[in-house]
Design a binder for these strands. Structure first.
Length: 324
DNA sequence: ATGGTTTTTACTGCGTC
DNA sequence: GACGCGGTAAAAACCAT
């Protein structure tokens, strides 16, 4: 059987492995349900994305110490955070645009002129060559699209890293900045477990969907990105909230997807369709008012596909369903 | 280019509100 | 009659070779 490889779904295999999260701590599987784990740095907790089990808490924060010592010594031990989202990682100087000195006094006209010249030179120094200007624009796009699609900062950072690699490996020749930036963000979103469909990207980016998918494929190949098919479960929370479905339906959908996966239903199928069908089936089982049409509209998959997947899922989970 | 697979489109009939 | 739902055939999209 030949299998589709791109669009949302490069399904080269239907294994039982979970999609690895990017934030991996020591254990990589939930001891209870073998679901994937996610580490919340700020709370210091590692939790299972499936059953919500807290695997470990009070992780030691090896990060920088942010506390300032305003009482005794007026120093903090760290500088500004670096970020991949600025083309120079936030390490360059920044000269404010207000013509005021550090005390808030406005400057004399002579000093104003001086500052203006400094700003000019500072700007030149910061974006000193075309590479930097390129990066600057791309990162701006990544940030814009990321927030338009509600992607966490972590994804934007990952995309930025990918884009830098593209620049380093000279992959931009003949491609638009926008296209590569979009492809990088698309790949990053998937890698981080927050997949968005190509359709969704098409609504926020300024290039053709075709170009994005082509560029993405190119990047994945050239940068040796090991892209697994998107996990249908990753779509559930977002679609469920768009459809205003309660948590018990989502939970049910997860179970259905597990059953489907166990029966090798994923192979070659659009993960978006799987998620849509699972939600529809789960809604029906939980007695929630829901139509194929509405799911189809929100998820952007045809009702036919929902029907087909839905029947397969029900069959895969047949035993439990008969009890209902 | 071609062939195999999945998804979509368009159309159908049936039952219900 | 409008709608939800299930089914089908043909077209389109997609990937692999």
């Amino acid at each position: 059987m030949t299998e589709r490889q791109l669009k949302e779904f490069d399904t080269t295999q239907s294994t039982t492995e979970e999609t690895p999260e990017t934030t991996i701590s020591e254990p990589d599987q939930c001891p209870e349900c073998h679901g994937s784990l996610r580490t919340d740095e700020t709370r210091g907790e590692t939790t299972c994305t499936d059953c919500g089990l807290v695997v470990s808490e009070d992780n030691i924060d090896h990060g920088p110490e942010w506390r300032s010592f305003s009482d005794t010594e007026n120093q903090s031990r760290v500088g500004a955070p670096t970020t991949q989202l600025m083309h120079d990682k936030g390490l360059s100087t920044v000269i404010g645009w207000q013509n005021r000195d550090a005390g808030g006094q406005s400057l004399s006209s002579r000093q104003r002129k001086r500052m203006s010249r400094l700003r000019t030179w500072d700007e030149r120094a910061r974006t000193k060559d075309s590479r930097d200007r390129n990066l600057k624009q791309a990162l701006g796009e990544i940030e814009r699209m990321g927030s338009a699609l509600g992607l966490p900062k972590q994804v934007e950072e990952t995309a930025s890293v990918l884009y830098r690699r593209c620049l380093d490996e000279d992959l931009l020749r003949g491609r638009s900045i926008e296209g590569v930036a979009t492809a990088a963000l698309y790949a990053a979103a998937r890698q981080c477990g927050y997949p968005r469909t190509l359709d969704e990207f098409a609504t926020v980016c300024r290039v053709e969907q075709m170009e994005v998918s082509r560029t993405y494929r190119y990047l994945a190949d050239e940068l040796n990105l090991e892209m697994r098919p998107a996990n249908p479960k990753d779509y559930l929370p977002r679609f469920a909230s768009d459809l205003e479905l309660p948590e018990n339906v989502v939970q049910r959908a997860r179970e259905l997807l597990d059953a489907g996966k166990a029966q090798n239903l994923y192979s070659g199928r659009n993960p978006v369709g799987m998620a849509a069908a699972a939600l529809y089936a789960a809604g029906k089982l939980e007695g929630v008012e829901i139509t194929q049409n509405r799911v189809s509209g929100v998820v952007d998959v045809s009702t036919v596909t929902i029907r087909n997947r839905y029947q397969e899922l029900v069959e895969a989970a047949g035993i439990e369903l008969d009890l209902q």
